[in-house]
Structures are given as C-alpha cells and as structure tokens.
Design a protein around this nucleic acid. Sequence first.
DNA 1: ATGACTGTGACGCACAGA
Length: 257
Amino acid sequence: MKIATYNVNGVNGRLPVLLRWLNQTTPDVVCLQELKAPQEKFPEQAIADAGYQAIWHGQKSWNGVAILTRNLQIKEIGRALPGDPEDMHSRYIEAVVNGIHIGCLYLPNGNPAPGPKFDYKLQWFERLKSHAASLLAAGTPVVLTGDYNVMPTELDVYKPERWLDDALFRPETRAAFKDLVDQGWTDAIRKLYPSQKIYTFWDYFRDAYGRDAGLRIDHFLLSPQLDGRLLAAGVDRNVRGWEKTSDHAPVWIELAD
DNA sequence: ATGACTGTGACGCACAGA
C-alpha cells in the first residue's frame, strides 16, 4: 500500500498539479494539507473523477486537511486534535483505512519566535504527543503524517546556521519532535536513508528549488506494528519543478500488505 | 542582512506562510 502526504498550498489553485500528480503516481492513500478552502469549496467532484473518495476539514483562507483513498474504504475517526476545544484551526483529521489509523496533520508554523504563535506551536505539539501516546497505547498500526513544520536535525536544512532562531528549527521545536519520535515512532525516510540529504520543501524565493536550498519538514511517523512493513519511501521532488506548483513536494511510503 | 514569491479574499492590499 502506497501512502503519500502533500502540502498543496491551496487545493483549488493547485488542482491541475494535484490531479496530474495523482494520475501519474496513483497512491492508495493521500494526506493533503493547506487546503486554504472553506468546507464547501473542496473540489470533491474533480477528485472523485480522478478515482479518489475523500474526507476533509476545510477552513476559509487558511489551513485545512484531507485524506483521499483510491479503491479503499475510509472511516473517519475525528477531525480535531484532542486537548483544546477552543482551537478552531483545521489542522488534523484521522481515519482508518485498511486497518491502519492514518493521522493527517498540519502542525503550526510558529513564526515569529518567540511569541504567541510559537507558544501555540509548542502547545499543539504537546497535544499531538499526548494523542500519539494514546494511539501507541491502543496497539493498532498507525501512520502519523503531514507537514510537521520541523527540521529534525541539521541534515534536514540546507544551511542550519541560518535557521537556528526560526520556529521550524529552534531547540524547543526539535526537542518536541524528538520527544514524539522517542515514544516509539519510526521516521520512515530516515530509517531508509539515515544520512542522505533529503528535502520536501523549497521556498518560492530566490530560486530555492534551483539552488536546492530546501528543508525536510514533511514526515511519516510509523508505529512499531508498521516498522517491519516499510518497503520504500521517497519524495516526488520533480513535482516541485512544475508550473504553478506548491512550495512543498509530495512525500510517500510503501508498506507491505 | 535584506527582500524576494505565492494563495486567499476581495478587487487594495493585508495576512500568512517557512
């Protein structure tokens, strides 16, 4: 089973790119982030015509997450990260597909740091850790994937020294990600490519893609039940070179059935 | 060190992104 994650940066503006990529790569499950569309403006029909059913949690202008499946039943479990009923951002949706819990997340950016946005990021991280721990305790296979807005190590940044004070790379952020992984999760890309420079995002500015000035911020965390089923993983980085493309590239894993 | 790009909502320009 092939599972992909893709921060589309606007699902309607990105629709031609999204459909082209879906058609070329036909993942079985797709987690989308940054829909930037209200609930009623999700392009359900175009995605259905491409062969995918979908559940989504939209929001006007910002955020928004979705899970798409191809020829697989999808059962929604929830569309909010537990722990803060006041949090109105659409940043989490969870479903069961093929017996696997799929958590699709869009972790807050957190800039500028320090400040209230950074505090929100760290609080969101705490809630994620809490929910992740309960998923592990349940003992079912789980994939937690999406845009984590974290470069976990220096290997994941083109110029680490420039990012030390950034919300995506500050010590508190990296520590939160490490705490999460240390619960018992496997970072799928790093398991297969422990020392390779791999990026999933390139800024629109200054020809970042052309210079390969990238970041690795979109991740797949696998619960222990799935660790042994990981067959392959990669980044469809060519998609970042397409016209009218997102600043993120799709990332994917392949699991044994 | 700075500013550069992009999508959305509204149809200016502000805001958020990373």
